[in-house]
Amino acid sequence: MVSIKNLHKKFGKNQVLKGVDLYINDGGIFAVLGPNGSGKTTLIKSILGMVIPNKGIIEVLGNNIKKNSDYRHKIDYLPQIANFPSNLKVKELIKMIKDLRKDTDEDERLIKLFKLEPFLDKKLGNLSGGTKQKVNLVLTFMFDSPLIILDEPTTGLDPISLIRLKDLIQTEKGKGKTILITSHIMSFVEEVSDEIVFILEGKIYFKGTIQDLKTKTKQPDFEHAIASILTENHA
């Protein structure tokens, strides 16, 4: 689904990615983990073409993404902080994104799922953080794309919406989609992900199942396994 070879990225003097090699198979949920500033978001934004790598090749579904924008028809992306144009109504934003990508009826089902009906005529600037995140989720999941990228999807969600989100992720996985998630909530990662990719200082430190990680670090639970990687590497 996604293949990354020898990816380098520098911001000024700060070398963020130092030769990332990563292959992500079709189908399944992959969690991208790592301490703050390890390059998770940079990696994701490189896949989306928002960050332009200094070196390396990225292929999504067999297409080199350099100087290409059509491949993004195959990706649904949930940005980290949902900041939308504030003088737009929720309804108008959804309509606009549909107009820019393609028409779909999925949004009605998602609006019902997240109980967003009362907010449709409100302006985005007046919504709470959690409600904005729900709108963000609707915008992401309404297109039926084979690759879904979620950057911190749980931010600001109440427990019931979180359960709905988990169900939604599982349904999408059931359709055979590939889902990439970054999150700092370890329990969430443990619950949903099939495989984890751990980034440390701009390189892939570990890739495999949670069980493999526990065996490798000789820790009984996931949270401690992650913590032990971080303490061992003084990160």
């Binding site: 989306l48 073409g49 928002m50 924008s69 059509d70 491949y71 993004r72 028809h73 990706i75 992306y77 940005p79 900041n83 939308f84 144009p85 994104i97 820019l100 990508r101």
Partner: peptide
């Protein structure tokens, strides 16, 4: 002011 809007658009299948 439209930085967020721009970022939203950049993730869509649109040319820069």
């Amino acid at each position: 002011n439209s930085k967020e809007f721009t970022e939203l658009l950049l993730a869509q299948p649109l040319k820069r």
